[in-house]
Computed example of a mutant assay.
Amino acid sequence: MKLIYSIHKYDVTMFTWLNNVAIHASLVRLCRTISRTADGFLYVLVAAWLCWDQGVDDVLLHAMVLAFLIERPVYLLLKKGFKRNRPQQVLQNFCSVVRPADQFSFPSGHTSAAFMVATLLGYFLPDLLPALYLWAALVGFSRVVLGVHFPTDTLMGVVLGVGTAIFSLDYLLL
């Protein structure tokens, strides 16, 4: 219990600092745009392009489908299991920049999906991996700047996304 309290205290400190730093207002517009890239539409476009360009038997397409079939239920189980309230519900006099899609904060689904897709695409297109991971990291950062997640919510999103991608690749390629 002491560990959880320490982590929460760290989260609140980092979150509060980031959302009160002078540059915060300048970051909001950019972060809204970055966050929207992980809303899901981009993933559907990638899958459609893979179907059109490579056909329905493409390994990357199968890995993406399998990864999402695993990641989304695990993500929902964690959300409903931990029931961690979002910053706006926890911190007095704080209002998030965007309205979250659901009540709970842990883990960050945007971050999880972004890292999952970045890992899968990066496996097949290794030259793009640094740029893909930069994009995914910016998605996680944007969720904190927009006030809908604490930093550890996004860290767990990284773990869930990368872990699911690796599992899917191992399952399909072995």
Rank of each mutant, 00 (worst) to 15 (best):
V74K: 05
V74I: 15
N93S: 12
A113E: 06
V158M: 14
Q54R: 13
F41Q: 12
N20T: 11
G40R: 02
A48L: 14
V98R: 06
G157E: 04
A22S: 15
R72A: 12
F68S: 15
F41G: 15
L155G: 00
E71R: 01
Y171T: 10
V148H: 07
K2V: 09
R86Q: 07
R72T: 09
P73R: 09
G161P: 01
R86V: 07
L42T: 12
K2I: 08
L27D: 04
Y123K: 12
M14C: 08
M64N: 03
H24Y: 08
L155N: 00
L120A: 03
N19P: 07
T16C: 06
T164I: 01
V148P: 06
V145M: 13
T37F: 01
L121I: 14
D58N: 14
R29S: 13
R84W: 02
L132F: 12
L61D: 08
V65T: 14
F41T: 12
Y171P: 06
F124R: 07
V139N: 04
Q54G: 05
A25W: 00
L91H: 08
H62S: 13
V90W: 10
G109S: 07
H24A: 13
S26W: 11
M156E: 00
R32W: 00
H149I: 02
M14H: 04
S35A: 11
L129M: 13
L76R: 12
G40A: 06
L120C: 11
V144K: 08
I23T: 15
P73Q: 10
R143A: 08
D57R: 10
T13N: 13
H62F: 01
H24Q: 14
L129Y: 12
Y133L: 14
P73A: 11
A137G: 13
I23F: 10
P100G: 07
S105L: 02
W49C: 10
T37S: 10
D39G: 11
